[in-house]
């Protein structure tokens, strides 16, 4: 066989999707539209998760109904990543008295951050926003 010109086929896979959130996630997202953060407690082992989850991340049992929590976070750890519109700080934040930590953005100069620092949510002005309702977390300024 003689070698011929090799072709490259440029193709797309373009598909629409619609994901059902489910009751627990829906209740959590609904809370965000009302500026409320919600968690769930495992009915079996007591593990408290924020954000709310349908199943316990430790023992996989069903969780009990969602609870509203204090909109207060504590900084566990963070990293600075370059971004075209300035660097971003991604952080692991323990929300209220959760047993887990959540990944979110922190809006602050990384040089001023300290482990255990208290954080508050910075809400977006968009009243329709769900998962994007918290734009970022920021250090609570002492008054």
């Amino acid at each position: 066989m003689t070698l011929s010109e090799e072709l490259i086929l440029h193709q797309k896979i373009n598909l629409p999707y619609r994901y059902t959130a489910g009751t627990v996630t829906e209740t959590f997202l609904e809370g965000l539209t009302e500026r409320t953060i919600r968690g769930t407690r495992c009915a079996a082992c007591g593990h408290f998760s924020v954000p709310a989850r349908p199943f316990c991340p430790v023992c996989s049992e069903h969780t009990s109904s969602t609870e509203d929590v204090e909109p207060l976070g504590h900084l566990e750890s963070w990293t600075e990543t370059p971004h075209e519109s300035g660097s971003r700080v991604f952080a692991l934040i323990r929300i209220a008295d959760a047993d887990n930590v959540a990944l979110h953005l922190v809006d602050a100069d990384p040089n001023t951050l300290e482990e255990g620092m208290a954080l508050e949510p910075q809400w977006t002005p968009d009243p329709e926003a769900e998962i994007t309702a918290i734009r970022a977390w920021r250090p609570i300024r002492e008054t």
Partner: peptide
């Protein structure tokens, strides 16, 4: 359409 549950549920 099972609109009452997410995939994991």
């Amino acid at each position: 359409r099972r609109l009452d549950v997410s995939i994991p549920e």
